[in-house]
Nucleic acid binder design. Structure first.
Lengths: 207, 207
DNA sequence: CACTAAAGCGGAGGCCCCTCCGTTTATTTA
DNA sequence: TAAATAAACGGAGGGGCCTCCGCTTTAGTG
């Protein structure tokens, strides 16, 4: 269960998204990226207890390499989680660029469902991380709601959805996804919830 | 680190202090008691990460036996913790019987310092247990403060301490112990705090 | 007592964690 | 391009976790 109190939890972990700091050697960066990639899959599939040795093997590196990059399981979890959030926020911009505003919003919400799904996989570790490392929470929740706000405002401005809602209402509605029971058909249910929500948002739009 | 979500945490753990339920076979009870005893020492000494195999060995049983009695580390921690609380409350009655009221109070507070000390050892696991298993918290904190209330009221009634304090004030003052830094001289400091507090309580008593 | 079913025991075995350090490789310098 | 060197690699090894199941002990019963 829990680890010794003495070891330093990832409080002051390296900010994974500022590539400056110390330009990793090419091979190191390659391995590190591959590890995070594989870990993301593994955590999503098997929960946070996925075997680190297995992850190292699948990434084609030795277990020692994994531990050099990520001294504790929590470090790895944190990096994977931040990457997930990053991806989600990035997707908001991309979708906004490539689709009509309301479609972008809908697609993003579907993506959000995926995000919550992985978050569930990470649940236990995240609960600990979020209480230990308070910046992580404020950081990420702020970013996500910003991304959503952007999409909602664009769609409203374009007249594709009604104008009398704001982002926090939508986020609140999405909360239903979060608290829904963990049944096998959870994903489908959530998909339908998003569609329903979009219908509600489109209803009475001027465009 | 964290365990699978699927396994049943000690939510509905057996109430360790109701010896009914299913009278264990004599040897089983012997082993179980010994395990708890040894575990209490081990957790206090090494923290919750103490080796379960080591505990089993020191209790003179096989690791299988330990796991049969306590399917997870948390089960064992919970039982040890409850036992600690039990002991503390029992001590209140015993001390009250064997000593003058104010002395009993002082001795009990010293004992409370020990209790907090072990609680610190168990800190990480306890934090998880207390959030997971909400009855544990209300249960134990209520019991402890009751025990203290009894002692304070008796001492006040006997005129050995001033009458204008109540138990919750004293508990509040003891809170200083809890939040004091984890330095090596913590125990001595806490001992002095208790003495100081007693002086304060005795000052102006009528007897 | 002697017998027997049920309860309890215990440790081998499989898996995982994490550290340590000799070997390999990317980059820099000449 | 070749040598030098700092960085990175990887896996063996020691230890802990937990399960599984054949063996032992206990508590009844005749």
């Amino acid at each position: 269960m829990e680890k010794k109190l003495s070891d330093q939890p990832p409080e002051t972990a390296e900010r994974p998204e500022t590539p400056a700091q110390k330009p990793l050697r090419a091979d190191a960066k390659r391995n590190r990226d591959k590890l995070v990639e594989v870990a993301a899959q593994a955590f999503a599939a098997d929960g946070v207890d996925a075997s680190l040795e297995e992850i190292a093997k699948r990434a084609g590196v030795g277990i020692g390499t994994l531990y050099r990059h990520f001294p504790t399981r929590e470090h790895l979890v944190e990096v994977v989680y931040r990457r997930e959030v990053e991806g989600l926020c990035l997707a908001a911009d991309e979708l906004a660029r490539d689709h009509r505003a309301d479609v972008a919003l809908e697609l993003w919400m579907q993506r959000f469902v995926d995000y919550i799904a992985t978050k569930r996989g990470l649940a236990t570790s995240l609960r600990i991380l979020l209480t230990t490392n308070s910046t992580l929470f404020s950081d990420t929740s702020g970013r996500v709601s910003n991304a959503l706000r952007g999409l909602v405002e664009q769609a409203a401005a374009a007249g594709k959805i009604r104008a009398d809602v704001d982002a926090s209402d939508v986020l609140h509605a999405l909360g239903g996804i979060y608290s829904a029971p963990n049944t096998p058909d959870w994903r489908e249910r959530s998909g339908r919830l998003v569609k329903l929500l979009m219908d509600g948002l489109r209803f009475g739009a001027k465009g």
